[in-house]
């Protein structure tokens, strides 16, 4: 945060428009460059969350999948806070063939 931004906040003023312009541009260009329409992106976001949710318990409210762009490279950025890993399914356990079982079967990931 810059001094100007702090003062703007304290005085309840709008932030300088250049910053707003920069942020809006970054977002719109990420979409332009990827040629993904918002609908497709939303569908992809839902499916990604679904898949991840099968393995680890995630905070669906906090989960965020978005496009970011830098140096003309567009990346899909997923920020998914993990609550904890899911209890391993029995058949997965057998396939792994691990004799020692975790007493609780839940790994807390912070």
């Amino acid at each position: 945060m810059t001094l100007r931004e702090l003062i703007d906040k304290l005085l309840g003023r709008q932030p300088a428009s250049a910053d707003t312009a920069k942020q809006r541009l970054r977002l719109v260009l990420a979409h332009d460059r990827s040629d993904l329409n918002p609908e497709l992106l939303e569908q992809m976001r839902r499916e990604i969350l679904e898949v991840v949710n099968r393995y680890v318990e995630i905070d669906l409210e906090e989960g965020d999948v978005s496009l970011a762009t830098e140096d003309r490279v567009t990346a899909l950025v997923a920020n998914l806070p993990i609550r904890r890993a899911r209890i391993p399914e029995p058949e997965l356990n057998m396939a792994a063939g691990t004799p020692e079982e975790d007493s609780e079967g839940v790994a807390t990931l912070g």
Partner: peptide, 18 residues
Amino acid sequence: MMASQEMLAVDDVTDILA
């Protein structure tokens, strides 16, 4: 306008367009 941050800065434009 650039100095008062009411216009995209030079670096902003070159960064964004790379």
